[in-house]
Design a protein around this nucleic acid. Structure first.
Lengths: 337, 337
DNA sequence: TTGAAAGCGGTACCAA
DNA sequence: TTGGTACCGCTTTCAA
């Protein structure tokens, strides 16, 4: 068998079957208004010629799109991998294909990726904005009438569909648990980028829990960092050098918590015994870490599913009320606290 | 400001700048053969009108493509997430965009995804084949002259670029370590799908290590399973009910090992003390699991990078010798053995 | 250096 | 139910 040089087109199929291109087009689109006999004939020709539908050409003509740009922070980060998993599975249900982008929390990369997505004529964008995003970033997309849904991090002053978590409630639950249930007096809060809204919301939960427990906040127990394991390690090393070190640590994320655990052990502490640790996210490895991590479950996969679903709805119905879906986090008690 | 109804086209830009569409086209493509003054004028018009390049239309006309279909097994599986990370980063360097597909090891999904990729006119495909793949699956792609690189799992009798690991060597190293260094006599091998080539290669490493150590293989110590944490849990429960249970377990993957650890603990064993465990992959959570997992590092991210690089080369130079890149795994000793 | 016209592979629209 | 033809937004080719 010889490899065909040129892509087999609808015209080729039409010629082969002795019909017009227009008719062949109706058939690839499963139109009911074509005679059964004609359909069979054309279908047979397609098979024989090895025809492959050109969705790109079709989308160009019909001004439609079956791809969705999905921009996340980092696929290597399990939280986002789980989120992406949810998004991807849900979008496939509706027949979309995912065009992937990762920003590594760089604004410049985000801008570039948004451009790429627009140039590729995506039918919608699912964006987890970088921490330094401004409203303009997203306005650009809205100007072009491309449906967009924000995930994980909300941008203030932007009327946009959003799916995220109640970080405040999550942090509140975690810190309240440490202060009240575990009777800690000095609870540190480490990790994460402090200008991000997700950090600030956690901070406000941290504060509320302290207020309710009647314990004043010691600002020197608060350290931000890069949102990575390394960031957590560095932060914990700093915080434990405090003249009056904390007895419990609330971490921005599980990733930070793992870094903290490694750091504590390096410094001779027993995490979960000497120092209580609580994470945030409940990524799968929280269950099998040493010690198993007490954490706030943020249901990453479900969040992704909902975000994708929302985008799908927005695409079908562009003028509809703005939606905000906030998922309530939940404390998962394990042995690190 | 008013939202434009219709996409701004090159024609609009050309009209605005008082040049022809062809000239404007040269400018978006950074052609040097256009007068500096004309360029500036057109660039200014683009900015004013908010022009967005339509890469899809351009690719259609020029019969080119800047997207790569990347088909993996599961983004939620950290090994593949790391692999994807490597692929994605490398492809971005060359200006490609990733169209993502996940098969969950279903042949039917794989077929569907390959079709989707072809319909979307991808410039190449990076496929991690499902365990039940046959040669025909991939022949389809080669017939169409679409560059393809296989990752992680090789298909026998298929002349195709490939990037993967020497699973045999990895398994051999792990089992040899258990038999010789740790003096075990009964080493089980659990998890993974036994018809897959990746399983069989590990099996042959397991055998070779036994032969060299002069220890006969007890086939009742070998159990396959779904390649998931749950699969590992089930397999370990079965294997420990053996009248003469193993004293060490070599697991198909880290995921399986984590399942095994949970299972062992459920049954009252102390993994790493009563039973030695070795995994395979060295996913990031292996470092922070309890106990930290001794494992074979398979350098998922690097593998992804190399695969992407190979595909890029194949696209640039379609007729060139077939390449096979095999990455040598490495034993990482931790506390689970 | 710039422009006119054809064409990439489909769909839309209307007439037969 | 089928066919003819314009056209989606860009690139290509060739002439000016």
């Amino acid at each position: 068998m010889k490899t065909p040089q040129r892509r087999v087109t609808l015209q080729d199929v039409a010629n082969h079957a002795g019909v017009s291109r227009a008719t062949a087009s109706l058939i690839v689109r499963n139109s009911p208004k074509v005679a059964e006999k004609t359909r069979e004939k054309v279908l047979k020709s397609m098979k024989e010629l090895g025809y492959v539908y050109d969705r790109v050409a079709a989308n160009l003509r019909s001004q439609s799109s079956t791809t969705i740009g999905t921009i996340i922070t980092d696929v290597g980060n399990t939280f986002f991998a789980q989120f992406l998993l949810g998004v991807h599975q849900e979008l496939e249900k509706y027949g979309y294909t995912v065009l992937l982008g990762t920003t590594f929390d760089s604004l410049q990369d985000q801008e570039r990726l948004i451009s790429t997505m627009l140039e590729n004529r995506v039918g919608g964008i699912l964006l987890c904005p970088v921490s330094s995003s401004s409203t303009e970033t997203v306005e650009r997309i809205k100007q072009l009438d491309i449906p967009i849904v924000l995930g994980i991090r909300e941008l203030p002053d932007l009327a946009c569909d959003y799916v995220g978590l109640d970080y405040q409630a999550g942090a509140y639950t975690a810190v309240k648990y440490l202060l009240e249930k575990k009777k800690h007096k000095r609870v540190a809060f480490i990790g994460g980028i402090s200008d991000s809204s997700t950090w600030q919301e956690r901070m406000s939960g941290y504060q509320r829990a302290h207020e309710e427990a009647g314990i004043p906040i010691d600002k020197s127990l608060i350290f931000d960092s890069e949102p990575t394991r390394e960031g957590g390690l560095l932060a914990v090393e700093k915080i434990m050098k405090h003249p009056e070190p904390p007895t419990a640590i609330f971490c921005f994320s599980d990733l930070i918590a793992f870094g903290a655990i490694i750091g504590l052990r390096k410094m001779g502490y027993q995490p979960g015994e000497d120092i209580d640790i609580v994470g945030f996210d409940n990524i799968p490895e929280a269950e099998i870490s040493y010690p198993p991590l007490t954490t706030i479950s943020s249901f990453a996969q479900v969040t992704g599913t909902k975000a994708a679903n929302l985008l799908h709805q927005r695409i079908r119905e562009p003028v509809r009320e703005r939606q905000r879906i906030i998922i309530e986090p939940q404390l998962i008690k394990r042995e690190s606290s």
